[in-house]
Simulated assay, not measured.
Amino acid sequence: MTGTPNDAKALAAFVDHTLLKPEVTAADVATLVEEGAALGVFSVCVSPPFVSLAVEVAAGRLAVATVCGFPSGKHLSDVKAFEAARSVADDADEVDMVIDVGTARSGRFDAVQTDIAAVRAAVPADRILKVIIESAALTDEQIVGACKAAEAAGADFVKTSTGFHPAGGASVHAVSLMARTVGAAGGGRLGVKASGGIRDLDTALAMIEAGATRLGLSSTAGVLAGFEAGAVAPASTDTY
């Protein structure tokens, strides 16, 4: 996907419409899917127990993504791989895994790569694997190292954030650095997903201009409404 969107329909095609709060119910997920379909988003992103329900309600109208090792990344690699495989068995189209951020902060990028590769082995090539690096908690050098590890392990995307880390979510700087490292901006093959704290149109467009090819949004309707003359996105307390 290239170019900066100039209307709500074009922007919606970048969006993973997301609901990952722990208090979410099955009814909430069904509502999320219907909202996503009405808005024309690329996918919905839900917690693993809700994948089958989301797939059923979506009925092919949009993709279904889920998460793995979420939100801390402090899971054994084989546990992450099992979780990913179960989600694929439930017909998830995409899996967003969280790395062990402490391992990246320690500079052990070979171990980061091994962790990602374990999940990649559980997610077949016809399904998308995104790697959440929690960019706000990393230095630039660590962001580059984590992105290169994701590329070497066979991931399809790198992703900024879970939206649950106290260090913060996506930043234009991190997205730009990630895109230059493994994305099209640097001649690489990986997509870049910006997520965490994107709650208005200006921020969403800035992320795309910086190199994001996908956006994780929980305030999707409010962001898209920014294209309407004089529209102001409603305040949101969502963390994602």
Rank of each mutant, 00 (worst) to 15 (best):
R180H: 11
G216Q: 03
I208Y: 02
S161A: 13
A155P: 06
L138A: 14
H165Q: 12
I143Y: 02
A152M: 05
L201M: 09
M178P: 01
S195C: 15
E151D: 15
S135R: 09
I208R: 06
R214L: 04
G186E: 03
G183E: 01
R180D: 14
F157I: 10
T162N: 10
D200P: 00
F164N: 03
A170T: 08
G183M: 07
M207V: 09
G183P: 00
A185N: 13
S171Q: 07
S218P: 00
A170R: 08
G186H: 01
V182R: 01
A194Q: 00
V172H: 01
V182Y: 04
G145E: 05
G163Q: 08
A185R: 14
D200H: 15
G169M: 13
V144G: 02
A174S: 15
A184T: 11
V144S: 09
K159A: 10
G163E: 02
G197E: 09
A137P: 04
P166G: 01
D200R: 12
T160H: 12
A185P: 01
A152E: 11
C147W: 10
V192N: 07
S176H: 11
G154R: 14
A155L: 11
D140L: 08
S135Q: 14
L177M: 07
L177D: 13
A174E: 06
V172Y: 05
M207T: 05
A149L: 04
G145Q: 04
L215Y: 00
V172A: 14
A179G: 03
V182S: 10
D202Q: 14
D140N: 13
G168W: 03
R214A: 01
T213C: 02
H173K: 14
R180Q: 09
T160M: 04
D156V: 01
A152T: 10
G197A: 07
I132T: 13
R189E: 09
M207K: 05
S195T: 15
G145M: 09
E151G: 07
G145T: 10
C147M: 06
L215N: 04
T181N: 07
G211L: 03
A155G: 15
E134Y: 12
G163Y: 02
C147D: 04
G168A: 05
A150N: 06
S171R: 11
G154W: 12
S135K: 13
K193R: 13
G168F: 05
A150K: 08
A150L: 11
S161M: 11
A185F: 03
V172L: 10
I198P: 06
G183L: 01
G211V: 02
A153N: 11
D140C: 08
M207E: 08
T181M: 12
A150H: 05
